[in-house]
Nucleic acid binder design. Sequence first.
DNA 1: GATGAATGAGGATTCATTCAT
DNA 2: AATGAATGAATCCTCATTCAT
Lengths: 242, 242, 242, 242
Amino acid sequence: MGKAATQEKTRTRRHANRLPAEKRISDIMIAARQVFTERGYDDALISEIAERAGVVEGSIYRFFTNKRDLLVKVVESWYEEMLEEDRAQFAAVRGTWKQIRFVVLQHLYSIRREPGLSRLVFQKLRSEPSYRETRVFQLNQSYTHRIVDIVRAAVAAGEFRSDVSPGLVRDLIFGGVEHRTWAFLRNEGDFDPVTLADDLTNMVCRALFLPGEAASDHFDAAAKRLEKVAERLERLAEGAGS
Amino acid sequence: MGKAATQEKTRTRRHANRLPAEKRISDIMIAARQVFTERGYDDALISEIAERAGVVEGSIYRFFTNKRDLLVKVVESWYEEMLEEDRAQFAAVRGTWKQIRFVVLQHLYSIRREPGLSRLVFQKLRSEPSYRETRVFQLNQSYTHRIVDIVRAAVAAGEFRSDVSPGLVRDLIFGGVEHRTWAFLRNEGDFDPVTLADDLTNMVCRALFLPGEAASDHFDAAAKRLEKVAERLERLAEGAGS
Amino acid sequence: MGKAATQEKTRTRRHANRLPAEKRISDIMIAARQVFTERGYDDALISEIAERAGVVEGSIYRFFTNKRDLLVKVVESWYEEMLEEDRAQFAAVRGTWKQIRFVVLQHLYSIRREPGLSRLVFQKLRSEPSYRETRVFQLNQSYTHRIVDIVRAAVAAGEFRSDVSPGLVRDLIFGGVEHRTWAFLRNEGDFDPVTLADDLTNMVCRALFLPGEAASDHFDAAAKRLEKVAERLERLAEGAGS
Amino acid sequence: MGKAATQEKTRTRRHANRLPAEKRISDIMIAARQVFTERGYDDALISEIAERAGVVEGSIYRFFTNKRDLLVKVVESWYEEMLEEDRAQFAAVRGTWKQIRFVVLQHLYSIRREPGLSRLVFQKLRSEPSYRETRVFQLNQSYTHRIVDIVRAAVAAGEFRSDVSPGLVRDLIFGGVEHRTWAFLRNEGDFDPVTLADDLTNMVCRALFLPGEAASDHFDAAAKRLEKVAERLERLAEGAGS
DNA sequence: GATGAATGAGGATTCATTCAT
DNA sequence: AATGAATGAATCCTCATTCAT
């Protein structure tokens, strides 16, 4: 009520161009991504998003339920983008260590490229009770599930110990990355994705590789002694045969 | 709601009893802790905190700069409480594995006891640019630095590999715990602190223990068997050669 | 809500079938009547009316000036419907009391059948300054004028007192009915049209019937007897005095 | 959320005088009554009410839950005012007819004095589903119940017929008045409260008075005829005595 | 020192209506 | 004629913070 009263009044109108819905949605999402990134959720104004998108405020509500929905959609598309980007490259990566490192590194790159969005996900979306019903949750699952898959495959291949929960590995990795990058997300300085990815991957692998597989020193030593024994036996055998 | 109701309510706190400032502050902080925990930061009302503390809004501002400062003070006291509580027990814990497990477990207990405050720290305080200037930051440093200390000691004692950054270990642990507990913090079900602490500690230790020292028992066994084989072969070789 | 949903929905009404204008108008009015009835004026959405009518919003504006005009047209057609329905039956009703009762009862039935529309008329249309220029006003006049006609006829026939304003009778009846039915219109329970119509009609008629016709018969009788006594006494006196 | 963010920013302040709550409430209600009367509910702006009351918008919400509550409170106070005003005078009115006329007349005066508020009650408050839970409903009950009381007393005194529902009488009266005054409420011209009150009261009384008891015209006529008879008898008696 | 009334900025959201296609 | 995307004005309410009493 009341709204209706005013709405029935005549009003001026400056008509705009009629674009395909997709273009509009994309314009709005690009603008929203910018504004959310620059200002954070609370300080992002719908009016500014509209302005940057070259759209009137009301138009945003034709495509998005509300501000929060707009954020969610922006983040979703970011996740899809990330998942899509990596997919092809990831398929080409061979070896457990390299695969883990790849995932970690890509994740670090994403955070470094989009600190604003990362912060929003960590801070705003993930903490809401409805998060689990979100598509962002599912996308994030897909995103982080790669680690679970890699770990499972490594276990199946006998590379990794079988007594570790792949989910725990995933949480250690993504949680560790997050903790490590908070300072950066607070604008307290940069970090080196490559070094961090290497360190983190090493750490995790060290915890998971089965003994025989990994290069442990005194396994080496024993092996070397065996080799020497074998050599001596060979020499003996040669001598006996002369 | 019910603004009008207040006028009909008889004012309870007409002439305030003049209590010592410390008692006031403590009352306010207890009330604030409750309200922040129950409602989260944004939905916590200064008026409700004042009411529960038996003071008026204005009094809160005699002791706290603003709402945010009040939150910070509440969290600081929580951290001090936690640090104090653990200190004695921790001093009694012997052994690297046990110490790490102790810290992890206490942290998990804290989260489980105060999910509301935990969420506020993770979500609100830590993400603000001024976090690093906060005493909460320092307290948190103390809190998490225990891990760094343990790792350093273990390295010095030759238990842990020396090529790992203790800071990274700390981030893996606290980040991992955080990631693992988000579902709980969103009220999506409980978790078992003991099991989680064990698993996490195992994982981390596995990554850090030097070969001969610990874990990888069956690697050891295998190595010993290999050595025995080698010895036998050597004996054979010696016998054959005499 | 669900603005975003629309984009995912397949458009149903892509290429509109070109129906005769009358069919269009009728479809729209049927849909509008439903929606206005269900939601009331302010909460009725043009978009929902359009959807139910199987047209797009714009088409509604080809036939109706604006939302309000649509309401007015809907109510007009309802009135015409009511007037038409009753006309034949009414013509067959004989007797002042029965005619009044008929009008009241039909009115009560209408309210009971269409509480939503009734409320809109009482609440929205009638209170607007332009009401008197409305055709709804005229139709309502026709509708209520029946009472005026009945009263006038009854006065002319010597049944009703001539010193009462037929308009006042009309207002008492329709106002009384309205007051009596507000609770029902607020969904606070049903009413019995027949009883109410009887009671109301009785009340009104009691106020209007000329004395001789109705009550005070025995007062008359008494007076007549006294007159006769007086006459006899006069005759006696004359006889005695002569 | 979000609100809080802005609220924590510093802001300028132009401090106002500290008035007793009652004065404030009264100022606000006076202003609100004006604005609601002038503009109707939907077009009344809280900001204008605040301005006229010499108060900031927020202050209104210290005393009133929301705009609707403010309207309700304004109307309540109007009803209380009316009830209070009449009470003393009413107590002095003797006679059924005069009492009914008094109530009707006061009601008409009220409508004439406050057409804006009357319209709001008729149009807005009374049609809402929650009306029955309102104090306005109760006050209105008190207001209209006078008629019920008068009718009951008249029935008990043997003046009025006992077969009529006092509630129906009440609805006829107030409904009739309302119907009669709609044109005025739409600004379509004035009405004469006295004449209307007389006519309405007469009508109602005519419907209710028991035959022999009171002021019906042909009771008058009969009375006159009786008087003539009496005169004739007196003359006879005089003649007989000469 | 305590009180608590007063401040006042600030923005998401709705939906009837238009008019380019 | 039909479509339906785009328009955009317009307002209620909250609550941390202040400062006169």
